[in-house]
Each structure stands twice: as C-alpha cells, then as structure tokens.
Amino acid sequence: MNSIYFDHAATTAMHPDVLNVYVEAVRSGPGNPSSLHAHGRAARERISQARDSLASLLHCEASELIFTGSGTESDNSALFGAALAQKKRGRNGIVTTAIEHHAVLHACRQLESQGFSLTVLPVDEFGRVSLEDAKLAINDTTAIVSIMAGNNETGTLQPFAEIGELARKHKALMHVDAVQAFGYLPFNLKELPIDFLSLSAHKINGPQGVGLLYVRKGTPFQPILHGGSQERNRRAGTENVAGIVAFAKAAMIACGQLQSRWDHAEDIRITVLERLSELFGPEQFVINGHLEDRLPHILNISFTGISAESMLMNLDLAGVSASGGSACNSGSLKPSHVLSAMKFSSERVSSAVRFSFGLGNTREEADKLAKITATISARLRIN
C-alpha cells in the first residue's frame, strides 16, 4: 500500500541535501566544540559557519543566535529567561494568547504559579487575536509578550509585528514562536519589533532535536540551563554539531525557496478542497481557521457528524497520515484548546482533522486523499 504523508506540521522528512550534510558531519569524526584540539576546533568552525548562515537569513548578528534542543526549549528559554530577568526590573506581567502552542502556554502557567501576573488574550472565530485586546493588556508592568506567528493547528497568522510595536512602546519584551511560519514567511529581525524568536529544524525538512532562539542584543535574559559555558554562557550543554549544520542547510534551502514552497503547499491545499467539495458537497465539512490570513500548508477541517478519532483511524488504515491537531496532543483524546478557544461547538471541535502539506506531496495525492476521505465519510455516516 502506498502511503500518503499529510502531517508536515508535526514533522518533516529531511531534504536529501540536508541529509547528505548531516551524514557528512557525522562521518567527519568526533568533535566537541568546547575542546581545544584539532577535532574540537573543526567542530566549532562548523557551528560558527552554520550560525553565520542562519544570521544572514534572519538579518541579525550571529552572536544573537542560541542553538537549543527543540522549539519547546527555545520557547521555554525565552519566556523564563526574559520573565526572570524582567522581574528584577520590577516587571511581572506576561501576555499571551489562548491558541499558543503548549510549549508557551504551559510555561506561562508555570510562571504564573511562581507569582507572575498572566493575561491570556482571546481570539475570534478565525483564531486571530485582536489588536485592541492586546493594547488593553500590555502596560508598563508587562515583562514579556508571547505571540505565535502562525498557528500550528489552523495556520491562522497573527498580527505579531503590530503587537510587537505595542510591546515596544511599553518597553516590554516581545517573543514570537515562528516554528510553523519559518520557511513560508520572511523574517527580517533588524526591522521587526521582536526580541526573541523561536525556530525548530524538523519543521523545515531538517533534523529533529535542534532548535534556535534569537535574542536581540542587549535584551534582558537569564539562562535556564546551567553547566558549561556553551553558547556564550546562555545555554549549557554540548552542541549537536551535525544537527546544527543540517539545520543551517535546511534553512538555506527553505528561505531560498519561500515563494515556491508557499505556492506548492497552496496548490495541494486548493486541490484537496476542490475535490472534497466535488465529492462531499459543502455542507459535509467546514474549514477551521482564517481563510486568507493563514499559512498555506495547514488545512484544518471538521467533518460534520464524524469523530476525528474515527476519521483518523480509518485514514491511517487507508495509508494516509494526518492529525487531530498538535503533534504534542496526538496521543490524547482531549479536545483541541485552539479550536475550543475559537468558541466552536463541541461537535465541531471533536470532528476536526488537520492535514498539512510539504516536500514530496503531489496533486495526485491530494486527489487520492479526497476520494479516500469521501469513502470513509460515506461508510461512517451509514453506520
């Protein structure tokens, strides 16, 4: 059975060129970047080159980039690092939204339990936060504002730049989780009002286990990992040399093909929707998320009257990999906190399936997905 992978928002396969770079780095021999001998110096040089490449893509200084172990670590490092540093300056407010990734929401809740004041902004029925709500929430006591660029379940884009300007007016720090948006949107950190930016390699056809955190020069920041002096004393732990080199290669490929990546994902998305409309009829499903201000590779659909669990199980049996939402919740039967925050009915939330597209997907696969989904839907509705 030929499988169809439509879960790229969860993780992506390594690009062939990235895999080659990764293998080459592994084969180059042992090398701890902190060691002073030749092997250590060679490893350190590979990391420096990767950091320079990423800094060029993000339009920032290489010294402003910290390599981490994941997007989650980057989010946690930004939030705890900024909040604890800002507390020393008399600021204890944290502002975020109800549709953030759990790496942000759970970190914010933990900070709240430590005495910080947390404001969670609501979103509208499209999953988009209001600038007016943000304006009312951000004040001179706010330590950090955390807003994702694009949602990992619905693809809805947030007005993070505009909110960043609001934060800057009150001298609050601005964190953006760009894990899903990087590779589809350009990020010029010299111009954007962002103090922290979180990225992850495995969302852009790089390896798993590598993340990146941008920290603007001069930004108050307190490390959350303590040990060695790696990453300029900002993140202890031996660096993942091969992963970092491969991350840089994946980013170079993705950022060099922003428009073609967008167009390809959009083409697959449109094909899926057109074929579903032909086979289902518009009353059989509904799209969750903003129809225009969105990322192209994420399509969240509620199939009326069919539980997501049943649909996903049958899709899997038919060789289609999709998701019920965030990959971190894939083993959970809890309803999506993102769709719940959008004030949908319990039926709409419980019937939502996320398809996400990327490297290797074709129109033929999109057409096949629609046919398989229609067959499953007809069978489940009869039963």
Rank of each mutant, 00 (worst) to 15 (best):
L166R: 02
E278H: 14
P220V: 02
V320G: 10
E231Q: 15
I47Q: 02
D293V: 12
L121Q: 00
A251T: 09
S330T: 05
S200E: 12
I301F: 02
A370E: 12
V320A: 09
S350D: 14
V286C: 10
Y5R: 03
G358R: 04
I270K: 12
S48E: 15
G325W: 05
G256Q: 02
E347T: 13
L131C: 09
P335M: 10
N300I: 00
I4L: 11
K135E: 15
V320Q: 04
T97E: 06
V215Q: 06
D293K: 15
R269Q: 09
Q180S: 13
G256Y: 03
L295Y: 08
I66D: 00
A327M: 04
T154K: 03
S330F: 09
A181P: 01
E309L: 13
A352Q: 02
A250M: 04
A25K: 02
T373D: 10
E162R: 11
K87P: 00
G289A: 10
D133H: 06
D267W: 01
R232V: 12
D75Y: 14
E165I: 05
H337N: 07
G183T: 09
L157P: 00
N240A: 10
Y214A: 00
F67M: 10
E162W: 01
T96M: 03
S351V: 05
G227D: 04
S277H: 10
T238M: 10
M311E: 06
G69P: 03
S377Y: 15
A83I: 02
L291V: 12
M14A: 07
F285Q: 05
F280R: 02
W262H: 13
E292Y: 13
S350N: 15
L225D: 00
H8Q: 07
S28V: 05
L359P: 03
N152G: 14
L295R: 05
L225F: 10
A83G: 02
F182K: 07
V129N: 05
I372A: 11
Y184M: 08
V145M: 07
S117N: 14
V129C: 03
L315Q: 06
F247P: 07
V123G: 01
N151M: 03
L185I: 09
T68P: 11
S35A: 08
G90C: 08
F182Y: 15
G90F: 14
P296I: 08
I138P: 09
L369V: 07
P335T: 10
H8E: 04
A161M: 13
G183Q: 06
L213W: 08
T154A: 09
T156K: 04
S323L: 15
Q259S: 14
V353T: 11
C108L: 10
E125W: 04
M311S: 08
F247Y: 11
G40W: 06
H37A: 04
N314Q: 06
H59P: 01
F187I: 04
V241R: 00
S28C: 07
S330R: 12
G319S: 06
R232D: 13
